[in-house]
Nucleic acid binder design. Structure first.
Lengths: 195, 195
DNA sequence: CCCGGGATTCTATCAACGCTAGCCAATCTG
DNA sequence: CAGATTGGCTAGCGTTGATAGAATCCCGGG
Protein backbone atom coordinates (compact mmCIF):
# COMPACT_ATOMS: atom_id res chain seq x y z
CA UNK A 1 0.00 0.00 0.00
CA UNK A 2 2.91 2.34 0.52
CA UNK A 3 3.25 3.03 -3.14
CA UNK A 4 -0.35 3.96 -3.58
CA UNK A 5 -0.34 6.13 -0.53
CA UNK A 6 2.69 7.94 -1.85
CA UNK A 7 0.85 8.59 -5.08
CA UNK A 8 -2.12 9.90 -3.21
CA UNK A 9 0.08 12.07 -1.07
CA UNK A 10 1.80 13.55 -4.09
CA UNK A 11 -1.52 14.11 -5.71
CA UNK A 12 -2.92 15.85 -2.66
CA UNK A 13 0.16 18.01 -2.48
CA UNK A 14 -0.25 19.04 -6.08
CA UNK A 15 -3.83 19.90 -5.41
CA UNK A 16 -2.75 22.16 -2.58
CA UNK A 17 -0.20 23.65 -4.94
CA UNK A 18 -2.93 24.48 -7.42
CA UNK A 19 -5.13 26.15 -4.85
CA UNK A 20 -2.25 28.09 -3.37
CA UNK A 21 -1.04 29.26 -6.76
CA UNK A 22 -4.56 30.30 -7.75
CA UNK A 23 -4.93 32.19 -4.53
CA UNK A 24 -1.63 34.00 -4.77
CA UNK A 25 -2.16 34.88 -8.39
CA UNK A 26 -5.65 36.18 -7.68
CA UNK A 27 -4.51 38.22 -4.73
CA UNK A 28 -1.63 39.79 -6.59
CA UNK A 29 -3.21 40.39 -10.00
CA UNK A 30 -6.92 39.76 -9.63
CA UNK A 31 -9.08 36.89 -10.77
CA UNK A 32 -9.00 38.05 -14.36
CA UNK A 33 -5.34 37.12 -14.43
CA UNK A 34 -6.09 33.61 -13.18
CA UNK A 35 -6.52 31.79 -16.46
CA UNK A 36 -6.12 28.06 -16.74
CA UNK A 37 -3.03 28.51 -18.90
CA UNK A 38 -1.42 30.97 -16.53
CA UNK A 39 -2.24 28.79 -13.56
CA UNK A 40 -0.84 25.73 -15.29
CA UNK A 41 2.37 27.60 -16.04
CA UNK A 42 2.57 28.70 -12.44
CA UNK A 43 2.45 25.16 -11.11
CA UNK A 44 4.73 23.97 -13.91
CA UNK A 45 2.26 21.49 -15.32
CA UNK A 46 0.12 21.53 -18.41
CA UNK A 47 -3.44 22.76 -18.55
CA UNK A 48 -5.33 19.47 -18.48
CA UNK A 49 -3.91 18.46 -15.10
CA UNK A 50 -6.11 21.07 -13.53
CA UNK A 51 -9.13 19.19 -14.79
CA UNK A 52 -7.98 15.96 -13.24
CA UNK A 53 -8.21 17.68 -9.86
CA UNK A 54 -11.11 20.07 -10.30
CA UNK A 55 -14.19 20.05 -12.44
CA UNK A 56 -13.37 23.47 -13.77
CA UNK A 57 -12.17 26.92 -12.93
CA UNK A 58 -15.15 27.58 -10.68
CA UNK A 59 -14.28 24.58 -8.55
CA UNK A 60 -10.78 25.97 -8.07
CA UNK A 61 -12.24 29.28 -6.99
CA UNK A 62 -14.48 27.45 -4.56
CA UNK A 63 -11.48 25.72 -3.02
CA UNK A 64 -9.76 29.06 -2.64
CA UNK A 65 -12.92 30.44 -1.08
CA UNK A 66 -12.97 27.72 1.56
CA UNK A 67 -9.36 28.50 2.45
CA UNK A 68 -10.25 32.15 2.67
CA UNK A 69 -13.09 31.43 5.06
CA UNK A 70 -10.66 29.75 7.39
CA UNK A 71 -8.50 32.87 7.35
CA UNK A 72 -11.47 35.11 7.92
CA UNK A 73 -12.69 32.96 10.80
CA UNK A 74 -9.30 33.23 12.46
CA UNK A 75 -9.21 37.00 12.12
CA UNK A 76 -12.73 37.37 13.41
CA UNK A 77 -11.95 35.17 16.37
CA UNK A 78 -8.85 37.19 17.19
CA UNK A 79 -10.77 40.44 17.01
CA UNK A 80 -13.61 39.14 19.10
CA UNK A 81 -11.52 37.65 21.85
CA UNK A 82 -9.43 40.79 22.14
CA UNK A 83 -12.52 42.88 22.81
CA UNK A 84 -13.91 43.57 26.23
CA UNK A 85 -17.61 44.20 26.32
CA UNK A 86 -20.15 42.64 24.01
CA UNK A 87 -20.61 45.99 22.26
CA UNK A 88 -16.90 46.26 21.66
CA UNK A 89 -16.83 42.71 20.35
CA UNK A 90 -19.57 43.50 17.85
CA UNK A 91 -17.66 46.54 16.65
CA UNK A 92 -14.36 44.68 16.56
CA UNK A 93 -15.81 41.87 14.50
CA UNK A 94 -17.36 44.33 12.09
CA UNK A 95 -14.09 46.18 11.78
CA UNK A 96 -12.16 42.94 11.21
CA UNK A 97 -14.66 41.75 8.64
CA UNK A 98 -14.64 44.88 6.54
CA UNK A 99 -10.88 45.19 6.88
CA UNK A 100 -10.54 41.67 5.55
CA UNK A 101 -12.72 42.54 2.58
CA UNK A 102 -10.67 45.62 1.84
CA UNK A 103 -7.30 44.01 2.33
CA UNK A 104 -7.94 40.84 0.32
CA UNK A 105 -10.47 41.75 -2.32
CA UNK A 106 -9.82 38.78 -4.56
CA UNK A 107 -10.21 36.33 -1.74
CA UNK A 108 -13.35 38.09 -0.59
CA UNK A 109 -14.87 37.93 -4.06
CA UNK A 110 -14.27 34.21 -4.30
CA UNK A 111 -15.88 33.72 -0.93
CA UNK A 112 -18.91 35.97 -1.10
CA UNK A 113 -19.37 37.55 -4.51
CA UNK A 114 -18.60 35.01 -7.16
CA UNK A 115 -21.30 32.56 -8.02
CA UNK A 116 -20.20 29.25 -6.67
CA UNK A 117 -21.98 26.03 -5.90
CA UNK A 118 -20.97 25.58 -2.30
CA UNK A 119 -23.64 24.73 0.24
CA UNK A 120 -23.75 27.76 2.49
CA UNK A 121 -26.58 27.95 4.91
CA UNK A 122 -26.97 24.22 5.43
CA UNK A 123 -25.35 21.75 7.75
CA UNK A 124 -23.29 20.35 4.86
CA UNK A 125 -21.43 23.62 4.46
CA UNK A 126 -17.65 23.19 4.71
CA UNK A 127 -16.33 23.62 8.23
CA UNK A 128 -14.45 26.87 7.60
CA UNK A 129 -17.62 28.49 6.32
CA UNK A 130 -19.51 27.50 9.41
CA UNK A 131 -16.62 28.61 11.56
CA UNK A 132 -16.58 32.08 10.07
CA UNK A 133 -20.31 32.44 10.44
CA UNK A 134 -20.06 31.12 13.97
CA UNK A 135 -17.63 33.85 14.91
CA UNK A 136 -20.05 36.45 13.68
CA UNK A 137 -22.87 34.72 15.48
CA UNK A 138 -21.04 34.72 18.78
CA UNK A 139 -20.54 38.45 18.54
CA UNK A 140 -24.10 39.15 17.49
CA UNK A 141 -26.01 36.79 19.78
CA UNK A 142 -25.68 38.95 22.91
CA UNK A 143 -27.44 41.74 21.02
CA UNK A 144 -30.56 39.74 20.28
CA UNK A 145 -33.67 41.21 21.82
CA UNK A 146 -36.32 38.92 23.25
CA UNK A 147 -38.01 37.13 20.40
CA UNK A 148 -35.16 37.68 17.96
CA UNK A 149 -33.73 34.65 16.26
CA UNK A 150 -29.96 35.01 16.85
CA UNK A 151 -29.09 33.25 13.60
CA UNK A 152 -31.29 35.53 11.57
CA UNK A 153 -29.93 38.57 13.36
CA UNK A 154 -26.43 37.40 12.55
CA UNK A 155 -27.33 36.99 8.90
CA UNK A 156 -28.77 40.48 8.84
CA UNK A 157 -25.69 42.00 10.44
CA UNK A 158 -23.57 40.04 8.02
CA UNK A 159 -25.58 41.45 5.14
CA UNK A 160 -24.88 44.95 6.38
CA UNK A 161 -21.16 44.30 6.54
CA UNK A 162 -21.19 42.61 3.16
CA UNK A 163 -23.03 45.53 1.63
CA UNK A 164 -20.52 47.99 3.03
CA UNK A 165 -17.61 45.98 1.68
CA UNK A 166 -18.95 45.38 -1.80
CA UNK A 167 -20.47 48.79 -2.40
CA UNK A 168 -17.30 50.47 -1.28
CA UNK A 169 -15.04 48.20 -3.25
CA UNK A 170 -16.98 48.73 -6.46
CA UNK A 171 -16.87 52.49 -6.06
CA UNK A 172 -20.54 52.91 -5.18
CA UNK A 173 -19.66 54.25 -1.74
CA UNK A 174 -16.79 56.64 -1.09
CA UNK A 175 -14.11 54.92 0.89
CA UNK A 176 -13.16 57.79 3.13
CA UNK A 177 -16.39 57.65 5.16
CA UNK A 178 -16.19 53.92 5.75
CA UNK A 179 -15.41 54.14 9.44
CA UNK A 180 -18.38 56.38 10.10
CA UNK A 181 -20.73 54.11 8.16
CA UNK A 182 -19.44 51.12 10.03
CA UNK A 183 -19.97 52.93 13.30
CA UNK A 184 -23.55 53.67 12.30
CA UNK A 185 -24.20 50.04 11.43
CA UNK A 186 -22.67 48.77 14.63
CA UNK A 187 -24.54 51.39 16.61
CA UNK A 188 -27.85 50.27 15.21
CA UNK A 189 -27.17 46.62 15.93
CA UNK A 190 -25.73 47.07 19.38
CA UNK A 191 -28.13 46.42 22.23
CA UNK A 192 -30.51 49.34 22.24
CA UNK A 193 -30.55 49.57 25.99
CA UNK A 194 -28.62 52.76 26.83
CA UNK A 195 -30.50 55.86 25.76
CA UNK B 1 -28.93 70.90 -41.08
CA UNK B 2 -31.99 68.70 -41.50
CA UNK B 3 -30.04 65.87 -43.01
CA UNK B 4 -27.46 65.81 -40.31
CA UNK B 5 -30.07 66.02 -37.61
CA UNK B 6 -31.89 63.09 -39.17
CA UNK B 7 -28.66 61.11 -39.07
CA UNK B 8 -28.14 61.97 -35.48
CA UNK B 9 -31.70 61.07 -34.66
CA UNK B 10 -31.38 57.68 -36.34
CA UNK B 11 -28.14 57.12 -34.59
CA UNK B 12 -29.62 57.97 -31.22
CA UNK B 13 -32.52 55.67 -31.93
CA UNK B 14 -30.20 52.82 -32.74
CA UNK B 15 -28.31 53.46 -29.56
CA UNK B 16 -31.53 53.15 -27.61
CA UNK B 17 -32.25 49.99 -29.56
CA UNK B 18 -28.93 48.52 -28.46
CA UNK B 19 -29.51 49.31 -24.83
CA UNK B 20 -33.05 47.99 -24.89
CA UNK B 21 -32.03 44.79 -26.61
CA UNK B 22 -29.19 44.26 -24.16
CA UNK B 23 -31.51 44.81 -21.27
CA UNK B 24 -34.21 42.48 -22.52
CA UNK B 25 -31.72 39.79 -23.38
CA UNK B 26 -30.06 40.08 -20.00
CA UNK B 27 -33.33 39.98 -18.14
CA UNK B 28 -34.61 36.95 -20.01
CA UNK B 29 -31.44 34.87 -20.26
CA UNK B 30 -28.89 36.49 -17.99
CA UNK B 31 -25.81 38.53 -18.80
CA UNK B 32 -23.87 35.47 -19.89
CA UNK B 33 -26.19 35.27 -22.88
CA UNK B 34 -25.46 38.86 -23.82
CA UNK B 35 -22.53 38.40 -26.15
CA UNK B 36 -21.60 40.99 -28.70
CA UNK B 37 -22.58 38.63 -31.50
CA UNK B 38 -25.91 37.76 -30.02
CA UNK B 39 -26.64 41.38 -29.33
CA UNK B 40 -25.67 42.35 -32.86
CA UNK B 41 -27.99 39.70 -34.26
CA UNK B 42 -30.78 40.95 -32.03
CA UNK B 43 -30.57 44.49 -33.38
CA UNK B 44 -30.00 43.18 -36.93
CA UNK B 45 -26.67 44.84 -37.38
CA UNK B 46 -23.15 43.52 -37.43
CA UNK B 47 -20.88 43.34 -34.43
CA UNK B 48 -18.68 46.37 -34.99
CA UNK B 49 -21.61 48.82 -34.93
CA UNK B 50 -21.75 48.26 -31.21
CA UNK B 51 -18.27 49.67 -30.90
CA UNK B 52 -19.21 52.78 -32.81
CA UNK B 53 -21.73 53.53 -30.08
CA UNK B 54 -20.05 52.19 -26.96
CA UNK B 55 -16.47 51.72 -25.96
CA UNK B 56 -17.12 48.09 -25.13
CA UNK B 57 -19.46 45.65 -23.54
CA UNK B 58 -19.02 47.23 -20.13
CA UNK B 59 -20.21 50.57 -21.44
CA UNK B 60 -23.38 48.92 -22.72
CA UNK B 61 -23.94 47.39 -19.31
CA UNK B 62 -23.44 50.80 -17.76
CA UNK B 63 -26.10 52.28 -20.02
CA UNK B 64 -28.49 49.51 -19.01
CA UNK B 65 -27.65 50.18 -15.39
CA UNK B 66 -28.60 53.82 -15.68
CA UNK B 67 -31.95 52.84 -17.18
CA UNK B 68 -32.44 50.38 -14.35
CA UNK B 69 -31.78 53.06 -11.77
CA UNK B 70 -34.60 55.10 -13.23
CA UNK B 71 -36.93 52.13 -12.83
CA UNK B 72 -35.78 51.51 -9.31
CA UNK B 73 -36.22 55.14 -8.38
CA UNK B 74 -39.80 55.04 -9.66
CA UNK B 75 -40.62 51.90 -7.68
CA UNK B 76 -39.06 53.29 -4.53
CA UNK B 77 -40.98 56.52 -4.93
CA UNK B 78 -44.24 54.66 -5.36
CA UNK B 79 -43.61 52.52 -2.30
CA UNK B 80 -42.62 55.49 -0.21
CA UNK B 81 -45.52 57.71 -1.12
CA UNK B 82 -48.00 54.91 -0.52
CA UNK B 83 -46.79 54.48 3.04
CA UNK B 84 -48.23 56.32 6.01
CA UNK B 85 -45.83 56.85 8.84
CA UNK B 86 -42.12 57.35 8.48
CA UNK B 87 -41.51 53.88 9.89
CA UNK B 88 -43.82 52.36 7.34
CA UNK B 89 -42.08 54.30 4.61
CA UNK B 90 -38.72 52.93 5.66
CA UNK B 91 -40.08 49.39 5.61
CA UNK B 92 -41.88 49.91 2.32
CA UNK B 93 -38.77 51.25 0.64
CA UNK B 94 -36.72 48.35 1.94
CA UNK B 95 -39.32 45.90 0.73
CA UNK B 96 -39.48 47.55 -2.69
CA UNK B 97 -35.71 47.61 -2.99
CA UNK B 98 -35.18 43.96 -2.18
CA UNK B 99 -38.15 42.95 -4.31
CA UNK B 100 -36.61 44.81 -7.22
CA UNK B 101 -33.36 42.97 -6.71
CA UNK B 102 -35.12 39.63 -6.61
CA UNK B 103 -37.42 40.29 -9.52
CA UNK B 104 -34.85 41.71 -11.91
CA UNK B 105 -31.56 40.13 -11.00
CA UNK B 106 -29.78 40.93 -14.25
CA UNK B 107 -30.70 44.57 -14.04
CA UNK B 108 -29.68 44.67 -10.41
CA UNK B 109 -26.29 43.16 -11.17
CA UNK B 110 -25.58 45.71 -13.86
CA UNK B 111 -26.50 48.48 -11.45
CA UNK B 112 -24.83 47.43 -8.24
CA UNK B 113 -22.72 44.32 -8.62
CA UNK B 114 -20.86 44.51 -11.89
CA UNK B 115 -17.72 46.59 -11.96
CA UNK B 116 -18.51 49.64 -13.97
CA UNK B 117 -16.90 53.03 -14.29
CA UNK B 118 -19.84 55.24 -13.51
CA UNK B 119 -19.40 58.07 -11.04
CA UNK B 120 -21.59 57.12 -8.14
CA UNK B 121 -21.25 59.11 -5.01
CA UNK B 122 -20.29 62.36 -6.68
CA UNK B 123 -22.30 65.23 -8.09
CA UNK B 124 -21.51 64.06 -11.63
CA UNK B 125 -23.43 60.85 -11.14
CA UNK B 126 -26.16 60.36 -13.75
CA UNK B 127 -29.50 61.75 -12.69
CA UNK B 128 -31.29 58.39 -12.34
CA UNK B 129 -28.64 57.21 -9.91
CA UNK B 130 -29.04 60.29 -7.77
CA UNK B 131 -32.80 59.94 -7.99
CA UNK B 132 -32.76 56.38 -6.70
CA UNK B 133 -30.45 57.30 -3.88
CA UNK B 134 -32.60 60.31 -3.13
CA UNK B 135 -35.65 58.12 -2.67
CA UNK B 136 -33.80 56.03 -0.16
CA UNK B 137 -32.53 59.14 1.55
CA UNK B 138 -35.99 60.61 1.94
CA UNK B 139 -37.16 57.46 3.67
CA UNK B 140 -34.12 57.22 5.91
CA UNK B 141 -33.66 60.86 6.85
CA UNK B 142 -36.49 60.96 9.43
CA UNK B 143 -34.74 58.15 11.30
CA UNK B 144 -31.53 60.06 11.81
CA UNK B 145 -30.70 60.65 15.43
CA UNK B 146 -29.16 63.93 16.52
CA UNK B 147 -25.64 64.08 15.22
CA UNK B 148 -26.22 61.48 12.51
CA UNK B 149 -25.32 62.45 8.98
CA UNK B 150 -28.48 61.56 7.02
CA UNK B 151 -26.51 60.78 3.86
CA UNK B 152 -24.20 58.41 5.68
CA UNK B 153 -27.13 56.77 7.41
CA UNK B 154 -28.79 56.28 4.05
CA UNK B 155 -25.66 54.70 2.65
CA UNK B 156 -25.50 52.36 5.60
CA UNK B 157 -29.12 51.31 5.25
CA UNK B 158 -28.54 50.86 1.54
CA UNK B 159 -25.59 48.62 2.30
CA UNK B 160 -27.82 46.47 4.48
CA UNK B 161 -30.40 46.09 1.75
CA UNK B 162 -27.72 45.43 -0.84
CA UNK B 163 -26.17 42.76 1.34
CA UNK B 164 -29.49 41.04 1.80
CA UNK B 165 -30.18 41.04 -1.93
CA UNK B 166 -26.78 39.81 -3.07
CA UNK B 167 -26.18 37.23 -0.38
CA UNK B 168 -29.61 35.76 -0.92
CA UNK B 169 -29.34 35.77 -4.68
CA UNK B 170 -26.00 33.99 -4.64
CA UNK B 171 -27.28 31.31 -2.31
CA UNK B 172 -25.36 32.46 0.75
CA UNK B 173 -28.58 33.20 2.61
CA UNK B 174 -31.67 30.98 2.45
CA UNK B 175 -34.44 32.79 0.63
CA UNK B 176 -37.31 31.66 2.78
CA UNK B 177 -36.32 33.78 5.76
CA UNK B 178 -35.88 36.94 3.73
CA UNK B 179 -38.90 38.74 5.13
CA UNK B 180 -37.80 38.16 8.68
CA UNK B 181 -34.29 39.38 7.98
CA UNK B 182 -35.65 42.44 6.27
CA UNK B 183 -37.89 43.10 9.25
CA UNK B 184 -34.88 42.88 11.54
CA UNK B 185 -32.92 45.32 9.43
CA UNK B 186 -35.78 47.78 9.23
CA UNK B 187 -36.43 47.40 12.91
CA UNK B 188 -32.87 48.30 13.76
CA UNK B 189 -32.87 51.35 11.54
CA UNK B 190 -36.27 52.66 12.50
CA UNK B 191 -36.27 55.44 15.06
CA UNK B 192 -35.29 53.83 18.33
CA UNK B 193 -37.74 55.90 20.34
CA UNK B 194 -40.58 53.52 21.29
CA UNK B 195 -39.46 50.88 23.76
C1' DC C 1 -28.40 62.76 -65.02
C1' DC C 2 -24.29 61.03 -63.29
C1' DC C 3 -20.21 60.61 -60.87
C1' DG C 4 -16.51 61.70 -57.19
C1' DG C 5 -15.64 61.93 -52.03
C1' DG C 6 -16.61 61.01 -47.38
C1' DA C 7 -18.81 58.75 -43.95
C1' DT C 8 -20.54 54.31 -42.52
C1' DT C 9 -21.27 49.42 -42.33
C1' DC C 10 -19.80 44.74 -43.17
C1' DT C 11 -16.53 40.76 -43.89
C1' DA C 12 -12.74 38.72 -42.09
C1' DT C 13 -9.63 38.14 -38.59
C1' DC C 14 -7.04 38.35 -34.11
C1' DA C 15 -5.61 36.84 -29.61
C1' DA C 16 -7.23 34.70 -25.54
C1' DC C 17 -10.49 32.04 -23.07
C1' DG C 18 -12.33 27.34 -20.84
C1' DC C 19 -12.28 22.87 -21.88
C1' DT C 20 -11.52 18.12 -24.24
C1' DA C 21 -9.80 14.33 -27.25
C1' DG C 22 -6.30 11.27 -28.21
C1' DC C 23 -1.49 10.01 -28.36
C1' DC C 24 2.82 8.64 -25.81
C1' DA C 25 5.64 7.43 -22.32
C1' DA C 26 6.69 5.94 -17.88
C1' DT C 27 5.35 2.64 -14.49
C1' DC C 28 3.46 -1.46 -12.36
C1' DT C 29 2.13 -6.56 -12.91
C1' DG C 30 2.77 -11.39 -14.07
C1' DC D 1 11.26 -9.24 -19.99
C1' DA D 2 6.60 -8.56 -22.26
C1' DG D 3 1.91 -6.68 -21.68
C1' DA D 4 -1.42 -3.70 -19.60
C1' DT D 5 -2.57 0.58 -17.32
C1' DT D 6 -2.19 4.85 -15.39
C1' DG D 7 -1.29 9.66 -16.11
C1' DG D 8 0.55 13.85 -18.49
C1' DC D 9 1.16 16.31 -22.67
C1' DT D 10 0.42 18.10 -27.43
C1' DA D 11 -2.95 19.76 -30.20
C1' DG D 12 -7.23 21.50 -31.16
C1' DC D 13 -12.39 22.95 -30.75
C1' DG D 14 -15.77 26.34 -30.18
C1' DT D 15 -16.58 31.08 -28.23
C1' DT D 16 -15.49 35.29 -26.48
C1' DG D 17 -14.50 40.65 -26.94
C1' DA D 18 -12.45 43.62 -29.99
C1' DT D 19 -10.23 45.50 -34.44
C1' DA D 20 -8.53 46.37 -39.32
C1' DG D 21 -9.44 47.11 -43.87
C1' DA D 22 -12.46 46.35 -47.77
C1' DA D 23 -16.88 47.52 -49.60
C1' DT D 24 -21.01 50.02 -49.85
C1' DC D 25 -24.13 53.67 -49.54
C1' DC D 26 -25.46 58.40 -49.87
C1' DC D 27 -25.17 63.20 -50.53
C1' DG D 28 -23.70 67.22 -53.30
C1' DG D 29 -21.64 69.35 -57.51
C1' DG D 30 -20.97 69.39 -62.42
Amino acid sequence: MTIQTRRERERAERERLIVTAARQLAESEGWDAVTTRRLAAEIEYSQPVLYSHFKGKDAIMAAVAVQGCADLAAELRAARSAAGTAQEALAAVGEAYTAFGGRRPALYDAMFTHRVDLPFATAEAPAPLRAAFGELAQAVAPMARPGDDPALLTETYWAGLHGLVTLMRSGRLPAEAHQRRLALLVGHFAASGPA
